[in-house]
Design a protein around this nucleic acid. Structure first.
Lengths: 219, 219
DNA sequence: GGCCATCTCACCCCCAGGGGTGGTGTGGGA
DNA sequence: TCCCACACCACCCCTGGGGGTGAGATGGCC
């Protein structure tokens, strides 16, 4: 490791600031190897970074979206997807669209940092470890008892998507989506979608539009 | 009129401040006869007034609600309903529940002021003039092209009510409710209820919780 | 081992909602 | 007179959504 003494400059991307904050907390112990330069929700990265880490919670899985839209010109040329959706087809689609890596949320923080370093060094890295909630990160609704998946479904409902839209966004079957809706509704105490939307609006499930410097920004 | 030189002290009540402001603008030219003392959204009247004028836009029509809950003890003992719902049964129910008057939004401002003066003088006043939008007042969504009735329906949707709930709140048939929904959705550019809820949240259709002194308050 | 949580999925049934069509009445403006 | 807007209503049909039941897999804890 002595051959790569420069920390990797990283931007964290997701539409929910709480998700970014959770990721930043996960990477906090590794600030000697990873510099957190910028956090962006629905805004492109403007500061120069080595890697943009895009958490796919409740948003495009990069199977359609243009990855280059995530970055201002010159900010970076490496985008890494960080997701719990690790279907092989999805991973391949993202790589075909120019992603420099596709990492599973099932990785430990240590593994994640190592993977970021590899990507910064020019490798293309993929990992499909099964996701488990113990592995760090944060999401809206966690303090209200929602699992990560339930929270993602509620976030997509709060964005106004139909169940069918949600199947396409999450790569789940309609039956799985309905199951998550059922369990989530029980936890948040609603029975109809308009109620769920209102609950989501009032509990931080609307996407943020926000750019913030990370602790290691040069500003 | 020389026999009643004291202006009537009035509080205006409705869950949407824009509705209160519209009503206040309507009464503005009559400030010599009507003192606007307090404006309350979802909070009880605390300042002493002669009459509390309760606009029923998108809320209980006082057919069930306790009118006394609208007032702090000692604030006033006269509540007047101001509504475009003028079914005879509804008027009677409200009077039975202690309302001191039931006034139609179809009245002119002049007529409204006269009626308030009568109520303050101890009379029980009812008016069932047919409603027309030209007659003053304001509502959320007006600048977006919604009629008063369409706006009320959208407000109730934004509050999370089902269509059946709305029939009970508005005294309309389910088919009328659906018709209003159709026309409102066309105007605001949505096709599903969750979208309508989000639109409503973003366009001032969530109820306010607010108490404000009127221009004539003694504070 | 059992239990629980989470993820994922299937199937059945019914309700809530929304598209469409059509209609009546009132009032105002050209 | 016609047209438009608004209020109000009916009926038809279909979609979107949500309740229920059941199942499988994994992992962690007692």
């Amino acid at each position: 490791m002595a051959e790569d003494p420069q920390p990797v400059r990283v931007a964290l991307l997701n539409d929910y600031d709480i998700v970014i904050q959770g990721l930043a907390r996960m990477l906090e112990p590794y600030r000697g190897r990873v510099h957190l330069v910028e956090f962006d929700s629905r805004l492109p990265v403007v500061r120069p970074v080595d890697v943009a880490l895009y958490d796919t919670f409740a948003q495009d899985q990069a199977d359609r979206a243009g990855l280059q839209d995530l970055l201002e010109r010159g900010a970076a040329d490496k985008v890494v997807l960080y997701s719990w959706n690790t279907h092989e087809a999805l991973v391949e689609a993202a790589l075909r669209r120019g992603a420099s890596g596709y990492l599973s949320k099932g990785m430990s923080a240590d593994e994640l940092v190592l993977a970021l370093e590899k990507v910064a060094a020019g490798e293309r890295v993929t990992d499909r470890t099964a996701y488990r909630e113990d592995d760090g990160g944060d999401w809206p609704g966690r303090s209200e008892g929602l699992s990560a998946r339930e929270a993602e479904i509620v976030a997509l409902i709060t964005q106004g998507l139909t169940n069918d839209d949600i199947t396409k966004r999450t790569y789940l079957s309609i039956n799985s989506v309905k199951s998550y809706i059922r369990s989530a509704y029980r936890k948040i105490g609603v029975t109809r979608r308009p109620q769920a939307v209102l609950w989501g609006v009032r509990h931080g499930f609307e996407p943020d539009t926000l750019r913030r410097p990370g602790p290691d920004a040069d500003d």
